[in-house]
């Protein structure tokens, strides 16, 4: 029984990892940079949810459209102002600029909101439901289902729309895309904006479950990398599978062995797997699918 609820909790956790990772993956697949600021952007989005909640008093779930739009805008500006300007420079510059950005954002949150743990309460989902014999808060069910839905939407967007197909085309052959009349630089900015907007979705979904403080995005950010690398860069489904495996693994380890060490367990696992299978668990080629 304990194991079953650990697995259920792991699925909810894994779904959120998958969502944060999807944004990272999109940016890596299209723009070909690793966005080390993704975790800090999630933190910013969570504080965005908090600000919305304290200003309006409305249920935090209502913040979703606002936070998604604001984060998308922030992502667009970050790309245009920073990333686009280092794309032709050395990898070092690209690596460190997103790192510096993440650090600036995180500590700006600390400076503005202080180190306290803040919480938002949801009246809508503040009850316990029983699903297949497992008791879970409605909020975590919503987080899991909402994340799965958002990843599904992303997949449909990439595969069934003209712009989405253009994004995939750019990911595969930027020069050919440019020669087909696609403005590659704009597609890059769009991909970065969408990738960042996904942290807004994640924030609105997870805010009722997690307390908000400046470090909150760090673990999710690093976990998202691990998910992306293990799932195979660019593969939406590979990443989703990896996210579930990691979420469940972490949750089960926390239940059966030790809560404190569950994160360390995942990191060790990651280092081992990274070295053993640098191309990810599921394949050799980087792709956007």
């Amino acid at each position: 029984m304990q194991l079953v609820s650990a697995v259920a909790g792991g699925i909810a956790l894994g779904a959120i990892y998958a969502l944060v990772a999807a944004g990272l993956n999109l940016v890596f697949g299209v723009v070909k940079i690793i966005n080390f600021a993704q975790g800090a952007l999630l933190t910013v989005a969570l504080y965005g949810v908090y600000v919305f909640y304290s200003l309006t008093g409305a249920d935090p779930y209502w913040s979703l459209p606002v936070v998604v739009l604001v984060m998308g805008g922030i992502g667009y500006l970050i790309h245009r102002g920073l990333i686009d300007r280092v794309l032709r420079k050395e990898r070092t510059s690209q690596l460190l600029i997103t790192f510096g950005l993440g650090m600036a954002l995180k500590y700006l949150c600390l400076a503005v909101f202080g180190p306290d743990h803040l919480g938002v309460a949801t009246a809508m989902a503040d009850r316990v439901v029983t699903l297949a014999g497992v008791r879970m808060t409605l909020a975590s069910v919503i987080a899991a289902a909402g994340s799965a839905l958002a990843v599904g939407f992303l997949y449909v967007f990439l595969h069934r729309t003209r712009i989405g197909t253009a994004i995939r085309a750019v990911a595969q052959q930027p020069d050919s895309a440019e020669l087909a009349g696609i403005d590659v630089r704009r597609v890059y900015a769009l991909a970065f904006a969408v990738g960042t907007a996904l942290t807004g979705v994640a924030a609105a979904l997870m805010a009722p479950i997690y307390t908000i403080q400046p470090d909150v995005g760090d673990t999710f950010g690093v976990m998202a990398f691990i998910v992306v690398i293990l799932g195979g860069l660019g593969s939406v489904f590979g990443a989703a599978t990896a996210a579930l495996i990691i979420g469940i693994g972490q949750s089960v380890f926390a239940t059966l062995v030790d809560v404190q060490m569950s994160t360390a367990f995942i990191f060790v696992l990651f280092i081992v797997l990274m070295i053993a299978r640098p191309s990810g668990l599921f394949g050799r080629t980087a792709r956007v699918a």
Binding site: M103, A104, L105, Y107, L108, L110, A111, P214
Partner: peptide, 9 residues
């Protein structure tokens, strides 16, 4: 607190 580290970033 944190503003100095933000400036580092």
């Amino acid at each position: 607190p944190g503003i100095d580290l933000a400036i580092y970033g």
